[in-house]
Amino acid sequence: MHLTLRKAAAAACLLLAAGATRAAADPLQNAVINASYSAGSVLSLGDNYAGGSVSGLDPYNVSAEFFTADALFGFDFSADGQLTIFNNASIPAGSYVASFDFGATLGAPIADFRVVDAGITGGTPVLTIVNDHTISIDLSAVQWNGDFSPLVTAVTLQAVPEPATAWMLAAGLIGLSAAMRARRRNR
Rank of each mutant, 00 (worst) to 15 (best):
H2W: 11
L3Y: 15
T4S: 12
T4P: 03
L5N: 09
R6I: 15
R6A: 11
K7Y: 08
K7S: 13
K7F: 07
K7A: 09
A9W: 13
A12C: 12
C13H: 08
L14N: 08
L15H: 06
L15W: 07
L16R: 10
A17C: 10
A18G: 12
A18H: 14
A18R: 11
G19E: 06
A20M: 12
A20S: 10
A23G: 00
D26R: 13
A31G: 03
V32M: 11
I33N: 00
I33E: 05
N34S: 12
N34A: 09
N34C: 06
S36F: 10
S36P: 08
S38W: 14
A39F: 04
A39E: 11
S41V: 03
S41M: 02
V42K: 01
L43Y: 11
L43N: 05
S44W: 05
S44M: 09
S44Q: 03
L45P: 00
N48G: 07
A50C: 06
G56N: 06
L57D: 05
S63P: 03
S63H: 13
F66M: 01
F67T: 00
T68L: 03
A71M: 03
L72M: 12
F73P: 01
F73C: 03
G74S: 15
D76C: 01
F77G: 01
S78K: 09
A79W: 02
D80E: 06
Q82I: 01
L83M: 06
S90P: 00
S90C: 00
I91F: 09
P92A: 03
P92R: 04
P92Y: 00
G94L: 05
S95V: 15
S95T: 15
Y96S: 02
A98W: 04
F100M: 04
F100E: 00
D101R: 02
D101T: 02
G103N: 06
G103L: 08
A104Y: 12
T105E: 07
L106W: 13
G107F: 03
G107R: 06
I110Y: 00
A111E: 01
D112L: 10
F113K: 09
R114Y: 07
V115F: 03
V116C: 01
V116I: 15
V116Y: 00
D117N: 12
A118N: 09
I120F: 12
I120Q: 08
T121W: 05
T121D: 05
G122V: 14
G122C: 12
G123R: 13
T124D: 06
V126A: 14
L127R: 10
N131M: 03
N131P: 08
D132T: 15
H133V: 14
I137F: 04
I137L: 10
I137W: 01
S140R: 10
A141Y: 08
Q143L: 09
W144D: 00
N145Y: 07
G146D: 08
D147Y: 09
F148R: 13
S149K: 04
P150Q: 14
P150L: 07
V152I: 15
T153H: 01
A154F: 00
A159S: 13
E162M: 13
E162Y: 06
A164H: 02
T165N: 02
A170W: 02
G172I: 07
G172K: 02
G172Q: 05
L173G: 08
G175Y: 13
G175A: 14
L176Q: 09
A178H: 10
A179E: 07
A179K: 07
M180V: 11
R185C: 06
R187Y: 08
